[in-house]
Design a protein around this nucleic acid. Structure first.
Lengths: 341, 341
DNA sequence: CGCGGGTGTTGAAGCGCATCAACGCGGTGC
DNA sequence: GCACCGCGTTGATGCGCTTCAACACCCGCG
């Protein structure tokens, strides 16, 4: 920076003013300094800038699994909003490892970013609390820590289940199955509850069987599907809600192989609008998890917390409304269409 | 850090030694200082560290589109390797915008990262050259800049096409079609060349038609597929190589709707092993683009360049060998299986 | 002509750390 | 008893920037 100052024939402080308070600089000087900057290809050292200024224009985004399209959407939502605001989002992918997630949080803490957005898979309450002890604003996305010590942005997972069941019931299905993993997974338990509520509203007119699976991967779906095939043939099943899109795709796959028609014999839908499931022959009905909104809203909360007086900051939990995405795995298809979005 | 020094009753420099050269510190002192660090929850300020040390333990990864699974694999490959080495990979997603890509590069340049890995979609030669002017090592992944001013890691895209065509020919197909976008896209042109080479080796025994599409999205595939259906019925087509997995899925979709059996009547395969296409009913044969290796190898080259004397650095282009991934869209299936990986 | 106020500009202080010459101290060899 | 050595430790220096009190200068007013 002193090179720039020398080249432009001004003091160091003036160059800094050009960069940070251009309105405080005389037009002629400004132009001269900017010329020198361009000519020398000067790029301001962010480390020194942050060290001296004591604040940062970038925020850290820690994501547990970048290969899940929900987290990609979250990242996009936050980034687009940040670039509107002239801020920067740095992303760290924890690759499904909790220790890596901790390392990523510590890294951003050490880098003194303005704030941290965390989209964890398991409870990261302790880590968040530790980071917050250091005075670094942190917002948790897509996971309810159950603690009241930070802002959160969640999707109403009970509503997800409710919307799914409502959709099947409203399109004429009366013998439903909910296929999902164990309830220790927060979203599974909530979605299940929503499904039950919708079924209960029908007062016995609609039946519901619940099929647990070992995990939420496609192989789990395959095993579950074999039992479902029998139920369809027996006439005791005409609508399947899989807690996960990938599970739904696996089920559809088995149905196809066994000659069970979707959605003719049975409607099948997922619950998390996962792009990894978009390539199928039968476009999957699902429920949109609002990743873009989650990222944007999370960043909004984070910026609010950064600007606010720490003493009077109130922790907010924003609950986003999920949205049904109807495609051809639940309603008759005249002609297959390509995946959208 | 001075707080830690005071708490442990040592000088500032000793705390620094504990952090950076623990072997130079007496065991008793070391323990005392580490205790103070833990008790105070001290986290070293990376900005100050880098400013003082003049070097960085983190490297920047700029990726043009995080929703493409190849780039996710690249990120994972680089990150895993980095964490083995105790380094840190920061990721920036340019979200398919070239101006954002430039901003991301400039950000990492300003942050004085140790080096930059760039996986661009369009030619970013000028930007790379600019960054390199500043003395920052940069390695380009998955794109041939055509310039000899930086290291690159590429997949042999001609081999991709060759492997694809060879696979179809070896499994008994003789009337092939190559469906792809325009040739101005580097990978498309190369894969096409590889396909031609494999067909040429058969000396007229195998036919090849080339079907251009407007773009590489599924909708482009739908339009192309309508013509292909006629060819299959006419008996002039029994094997389709789509330049992209998504294109292949769209084609399979139309075939399914029209009653054309895959792989019975016609084999269909893709060329970029994209996880967005893994959910389909017919698991897609494709060619693995070695994203994990690309990320790892890119980081290796980058670290080599960082350690080397800039004067005698030689630019290297590593060419990775693609690998065929055979699944059921090209060879008879007894029973549908779930997507693997 | 002198003075107050506004506009631009200056340069020194300090952000939190790594580094390194210098130093203290106990031990070794003569 | 002295010189010498090496291990631990110290604290001043500087990394590149922001900030701010202080200053230079010009204008208009009394």
């Amino acid at each position: 920076m002193s090179d720039v100052a020398r080249a432009a024939g001004v003091a160091l402080g003036t160059v800094s003013n050009v960069l940070n308070h251009p309105d405080k600089v005389a037009p002629a000087t400004l132009e001269r300094v900017q010329g020198a900057i361009a000519q020398l290809g000067f790029v301001r050292n962010t480390n020194a800038q942050q060290l001296a200024a004591g604040r940062s224009r970038s925020i850290g985004l820690v994501v547990i699994d970048i290969s899940n399209s929900l987290f990609v959407d979250i990242a996009r939502g936050a980034q687009r909003f940040a670039s509107e605001l002239g801020m920067n989002v740095l992303m760290a992918n924890s690759d499904n490892r909790v220790d890596q997630q901790r390392a990523d949080l510590d890294f951003f803490d050490g880098a003194r970013v303005g704030g941290i957005l965390l989209a964890p898979m398991e409870d990261a309450g302790e880590d968040v609390a530790r980071i917050r002890t250091h005075g670094r604003p942190t917002v948790v996305l897509n996971f309810d820590t159950g603690r009241n010590d930070c802002c959160q942005v969640l999707v109403d997972n009970e509503e997800v289940g409710y919307l799914a069941a409502r959709h099947l019931i409203d399109s004429g299905r009366t013998r439903l199955a909910f296929v999902g993993g164990r309830d220790y997974l927060q979203p599974v338990a909530l979605r299940r509850r929503g499904v039950r509520r919708a079924v209960a509203e029908e007062g016995g007119r609609v039946s519901l069987q619940e099929v647990p699976t070992e995990n939420l991967d496609p192989p789990g779906g395959l095993r579950a599907a074999e039992g479902l095939v029998k139920d369809v043939r027996r006439g005791s099943l005409d609508g399947v809600i899989a807690v996960t899109d990938l599970l739904a795709m696996a089920i559809i796959q088995v149905f196809g192989a066994e000659g069970v028609e979707v959605p003719g014999d049975v409607a099948v839908m997922g619950c998390d609008h996962n792009s990894a499931a978009w390539g199928g022959m039968i476009p999957l009905t699902s429920v949109q998890m609002q990743g873009l909104d989650m990222g944007r809203e999370g960043l909004r909360l984070l910026l609010a917390e950064i600007d606010e007086d720490p003493a009077e900051h109130r922790h907010v939990t924003t609950m986003l409304r999920p949205e049904l995405v109807v495609r051809e795995s639940t309603v008759g298809r005249e002609r297959p269409m390509p995946p959208r979005d």
